[in-house]
Amino acid sequence: MKAPPFQYHRPQTREELSALLSSLENAKILAGGQSLMPMMNLRVLAPEHLIDINRISDLAGIRETADGIEIGAMTRQADVLSSDIVKARIPLLIRALEHVGHIQTRARGTIGGSCCHLDPSAEQPAMCAALDAELIVTGPEGRRIVPISEWFEGLLQSALGEQEFLEAIRIKPWAKGHGYGFAEYARRHGDFAVAGGAAMIKAGNDGRITRAALLSFGVEASPRRLSDAEVALIGQPIDKLDIEPVVTEARALDAMEDVHVTAGYRRHLAGVLIRRALHEACTTLERQP
C-alpha cells in the first residue's frame, strides 16, 4: 500500500497553482488528502503529478460578502464546524458536518476537497446542493461561477476542468429563523452514509410554507433535490403537512446497490430519512410573530 511514483509540487500562490495546472498532464490536486491519499495507496489512482495546495494560505477561510458567505476551498471541516458565521447563518451545514468522518479526519479534510471528489454519500456537496451554493472556480480563462445544479456530472465527476481549481464555495444563507433538518443513516459513526436527507423550510406569518428545499443523498450517484415535493410543500400549513408526496418522491429515486445493501433498502431509507429531516426542519423553524 505504497503509492505509485509521482512528482510532488507545492505551489505557494494561486498563480503558481494555475501555472502548474496549465503545464502538467495527469495532475491531481492534493487538498486534505482524506480520499486521495488512500486511493493512491490502494493504487486505484496513479496521477503523475501531485499538486499540494496546502501552502496557499488564502484558499482557506470563511468570510461574509455581499453575495453570500464564502468558504475557501481549503477550509478544514473542523474550522467550518467551529465557525461562528456558519453556526449563525448556515446551521444545516453544521448539522451535516457533525456526521463527516471523525475529529481526526475533519482536522485535515477540506470542504473543497469533498466538493471536488464527489462521493455520492458525501455530506458537504449534498448540503451545497440543498443550499443552492455557487462554486467559484479559477482557470486559464479566469474566474467563473458554477451553480451547484451544474456541478455534478456523474459518479465522482464534477464540472471542474482539468486546468481549473476550486477557489471557494459561496452560499446565500436563508433568512434567520428558517427551519432546517438533517438525517442520515450509517452503519457506524463517521462512515459514509447508506443514505441521507436534508430539508429547509421557511414559513410566513400565517404558518404556511413559503420556501422549501428537500434533498436526498447517498441514494443516486449524485445528491438529488426533490423538486416536485418542494413545490407541493409551498402553501402548506406546517402543523398539518402532507408529507406523503415527499416520501413518495424520495422512494422513487433511482437508487444504487452495492455488496451491502439493495436499491430497495436505499429507497426505503431515502423515504424514512427525508421524513425525519423535514420533521426536524419543522421543529427548528422559528415561527414569525
Binding site: D191, F192, V259
Partner: peptide, 28 residues
C-alpha cells in the same frame, strides 16, 4: 452485527478495505 467477508462466485474478495469490511468501533 458487522463483520462479513464477501466473495463473488469467482472467488474475488469484495470487502478488502475497512470501508467495506465493518469492524466494530467504540462509538457503537
Amino acid at each position: 452485527l458487522f463483520e462479513r467477508m464477501i466473495y463473488d462466485e469467482q472467488g474475488q474478495p469484495l470487502t478488502t478495505t475497512y470501508g467495506d469490511y465493518l469492524l466494530p468501533m467504540a462509538s457503537e
